[in-house]
Amino acid sequence: MRSSLALSLCLLLPFLVTAILLAGGLFRRQPNASPGPGFFRRNGPAVSIYLVIAVSAWVFLTIVFPQIAMIDLSFHPNLPPKKIGGPEDVFTLENYRYFVFGPVSSTGSLNTLHLGAYAATITASVAVTALNFILCYPIAFYMAQSALPRALRRLIILLILPYWINEVLRVFAVRLLLSDAGIVNRMLLATGLVGTPVDFIGNNVGLYWGLSYTCILTMVFTLYNALESLDKSQIEAARDLGAPWWHVHMFIVMPYAKPGIASGCALTFMSCVGSIAAPLVLGGPRTLWFTPVIYDRFYQALNWPLGAAYAVILLVSCTVFVLLSLRILGLKLGQIAR
């Protein structure tokens, strides 16, 4: 019942919003209203109505309603379908308590397994983000400021090409590369640098590799976008005044690109925290990433409310983390969307 109501709301809302905006548009068309053509006048009625429907459908169907459903679910107990909506279906914080303290029956005082996975995921994602920034900044700078058009086109194709392949396949390829019998280990053995194969998967080199690889494109292109508009003469002026290269980057280029850097780091961090293929395939036996934990709540433990609670915890804490970081950097959310 609840779901059918939600569904009908989902489908109706875009039309409702359209109607409201249309009314607003008509209202604004009154003489001596705002100067300049309004939204509807500028785009024509067909395009305008399409835009309103498409955007509101996008916002409500893919973002607002699923998240509301998820949040709602996370505050309910795990019940068989028959009992949903019955007297036992009450508001509860049990799922959130479970994340911190574990099952009521457990002996430990804290749910160390899941808390640990959560902390490890956040830490590793911060590390991967930092690593990615260090890897991508020089590439993006070269692309934006020094590459000739031909070299730039070639480089962009080289960067994009691997992403035509599905992520799961790419991650498996990294696993093959780094496995005990993989090319890297065979080369290391052949050159005699190591006596026994290096356990790249076990000590998480593979995981970091795979995660960085997954996020490189986001980072490079966000940084490129930010650096491209920097006037070359700014850099030359700093050089001319005697600045060594590191000083130019630290005090001229990076401050200029700060919104882009923040945006790239936020995107990388979020997609890193939320990635699932790389941790599943490349995570060592001792590594517990938080997304597989969520996945397991849904499909192994079949406890959807608990999974929902975990997903909400991850989403909310990461959003807060990113917003706080922006705040510390003195940036507004609007600035990073340039």
Partner: peptide, 29 residues
């Protein structure tokens, strides 16, 4: 290199640093 020469260039478009104040611009070198 340009940072090691006893010259200072005034660019056609001035190339002042927009994120710095006037004093910070002048004091950069």
């Amino acid at each position: 290199g340009p940072n090691m020469r006893p010259t200072a260039l005034i660019f056609q478009n001035l190339a002042l640093f927009p994120l710095m104040t006037v004093a910070e611009n002048i004091g950069y070198g």
